[in-house]
Design a binder for these strands. Sequence first.
DNA 1: AATGCAAAATTTTTT
DNA 2: ATTTTGCATT
Length: 736
Amino acid sequence: MSIYDTLNTKQKEAVFQTDGPVLILAGAGSGKTRVLTHRVAYLIEEKGINPWNIMAITFTNKAAGEMRERVDGLVGFGAESIWVSTFHSTCVRILRRYIDRLGYDHNFTIYDTDDQKTIMKEVCKYLDIDTKVYKEKMLLSAISKAKDELIGPIQYRLNVQGDYSKEKIAKVYEEYQKRLKSNNALDFDDLIVKTVELFRDNEDVLDYYQERFKYIMVDEYQDTNTAQFQLISILASKYRNLCVVGDDDQSIYKFRGANISNILDFEKVYNEATVIKLEQNYRSTQTILDAANHVIQNNFGRKDKRLWTENEEGEKIAYRQFQNAYEEAEYITEDIAQKVRSGAYEYNDCAILYRTNAQSRTFEEKFILANIPYKIVGGINFYARKEIKDLLAYLKTIDNAKDDLSVKRIINVPKRGIGAATIAKVQDFAIAHEMSFYDACRVVEDIPSIGKSGAKIKLFVNFIQVLRSKLEFLSVTEIMNEIIEETGYVRDLEAENDEEAIARIQNIDELISKIVTYEESTDEPSLSGFLEEVALVADIDSLAEDSNHVVLMTLHSAKGLEFPNVYLAGMEDGIFPSYMTITSDDPTEIEEERRLCYVGITRARQHLTLTCAKQRMIRGETQYNKVSRFIKEIPSSFVDLEVTEDKIQEMPKSMLYQQARNTFQSKVFEPKMFQVKKAESLTYGIGDTVKHIKFGTGVVTAIVEGGKDYEVTVAFNTAGVKKMFASFAKLKKVEQ
DNA sequence: AATGCAAAATTTTTT
DNA sequence: ATTTTGCATT
């Protein structure tokens, strides 16, 4: 009996095919992680490959950690020398060693999105770019896109010759890159780009890594972009033992540069490739899988495959429609509470998935009310919070004196009386003398017209220098404590003593415990090492498995996870699929949304609930959305609809036209639940006093009968005169 | 230089 | 609706 006996035929095939290029098309829940880990074990134990020669690349640290853990469980010893990490941390590791070849220092800083924006603002100001016409965000995304395709500033400029506005972007790109370099910093995209550059220009380095990584495995291959593909190709080009695992139906990161043709054309690029399809699903019930299959079938240009399972049919998929987002959240909250009470599920069996982060708030409110433990993944990254960024900027300043951005961030935090005018003078001096901002601070007495501020800057510089000298004999934790103590950062917050300040202090405490954890769990902890780890964390990484709480996250974050009981909330056209993709004239965009839906459905093991609201507040405006087209793609035989009096209600007239049109266009069978019932008579008339949930009481001044609904005008006592549709307003007559 | 208010942007998804 | 940003004031 060997560990491989538990694998099915296809899985075994994938595990045993160790040499040459291999493409594993692994459907959702088909045990791809199992295959990858067993493959590693097989390479080491049966093929006698040195663990040192194996590399596995994933997208998130969480996935990497899981894989490492599982490999450890399978392989007797040596597992620790397998290189398991994400694209980004792989590149950082390589660059830390060789980046001097590209003219950077080894202790380079990694800039996050916020930092990029700050740099871009400076660039625009410097180049006199009108940011009303060229938005920073737009410029950054253009640059990011270029980097994804491995197009450098110079080539970009050549490519866009003759196009005035793109030439401007080229100029920005060049200046942006120049500034990153003088700050000794790389952005996320640079990590990949620079590594490819390093390999292209330094044969000895490339050769070293090619010899080292004789066996390369890439997970979530459908989400790789061109730069990542190049990186992998270059590394694998010598031994060609490249095994990629992916599912084209789960490609959901096109907006981030993921190139789906990497997976679709793998066999063309590697024509000797072995292709293995894993189609047996071990995760979900038959019903859930059928639903997923029906949805994804509507996409064109996908690799042909069909998931099947030996699992039982299971419960039907619940579908519930509500008046608004509050009722939707209330229902889900109550449903979870009830299922936990009955013992059917634990809190951590349940996940709520939604399209946009903004949707999480309504749920959060209801969870707090219901006293249910929950965890929201995503939204504002922990490390993107002000207080955390401030304190990290101190660490970065100590670590990398060229990181002007960090220095400028904290030079006057807490307030030291160093204002914008002073900073500008130092900046000008630094540029004139071609030195870094911090170095200019060090020689502040040489700067003319600096005045009294010079002494203040000197104090700041001394503070940093002292810390830097202490770096040798103090731990990162001790340094951090000293920063907090000396700057009085926490003391100031304590003085504020409001809710926000308390939350910030808690965040700072969390940061300290993260530093402690880092120093305890790392062999050779260092300041650079900690900063690096911090720069590359994703929110999903911190999702602990042992604690018992409901998880809330976007559909994107949910990729790769599974839960017994899943809720897909906000299933409305305009929300999911998003408004952007519906109105776009690129039909592949809606296909990406559909893949996202497929990902969502296949997260569920046993029970799936789809919910939507007829009415939803978006950016302060009430929207009336029709039911998501994806729901209509699920045959009604798989769906359970609870019909209650409240659930079937009138749509306003304006929506009816749209819905009718939609019904007309839709080829797929439309379940009864979407049909609209004719209104009953109203319980109130003109002159009656009525009560509204939000606006309070008022007097009905007019009722206009439309085709399908009544438009009621009410003069509220406090809220003024409002016109509303009877079915939505839920007005109650007040007896006098 | 710090505070306070009005205007503008935000929301599709993130390593 | 809420949050961030810019501008003007003290």
